[in-house]
Amino acid sequence: MAQQTLLQARGIVKNFGHVRALRGCDFDVYPGEVVAMIGDNGAGKSTLVKIVAGVQPPDNGELYFDGEPVTLADPTEAQALGIETVYQDLALAPDLDPAANLFLGREVLKPGLIGKLGFLDTKAMTAKTLAAFKNLGAGVQSATAPVATMSGGQRQSIAVSRAATWADRLVIMDEPTAALGVVQSRAVLELIRRVRDQGIAVIIISHNMPEVLSVSDRVEVLRLGRRVAQFVTADTDMEALVAAMTGARVQEDAG
């Protein structure tokens, strides 16, 4: 591919004591694509996601964003680059409403002096939240009931909407449908496509092969802390993916 990568990881190493989670792992994301990151348990997916999200620093290796080398010391630095992450546990505040969650840490203050005192512009945040839900087709009607009162699918939608609202470039989703039923999963996958259609790249971690095949543009396979294969989704099938994941077939790294 001749296109400039959005995010490029090269030779990432991360050890936890004696556990070698990543052993020189590469990864590529191109602008505006949905790339699935797959791999068996212990392949290093979650660790790699945390490094890209700025939650943990790598022991070794480089990250490039728009071709430029970057270091991500904490999540806010990743956010400043336009990278948002939807964690498996969603990281929502259950007692707060969707609008409060969507704008958490990025609250809109009232204009003028009163805003300088820290007063929230709840009306503006609620309106923008409802607009974001509508825009993404998220099945959340109320922006004002506590998140704890909502279904798992609605919560997932709120988390995804939050990420999509603030990510200019890249949304990372760790197992977004793992806890959801069929109908809700379908809605979230649809939401992912709409995020991509807005020009934002998406990394999705998933164990669900049909889901990967249905939503992604490309697939990258990790195994034992390394990237072992890259596929264009349209040109592959489940058998090939599973073979790569289990090590039955090794593909030379294209990067």
Binding site: T76, A91, E107, G118
Partner: peptide
């Protein structure tokens, strides 16, 4: 009505979530 209050309850509701949003 203020961000101070919002952060107070956000931290009480899910401290980790509050950390992750910065």
């Amino acid at each position: 009505y203020t961000r101070f209050g919002r952060y107070t309850l956000a931290i009480g509701s899910n401290e980790e979530a509050a950390r992750r949003v910065g």
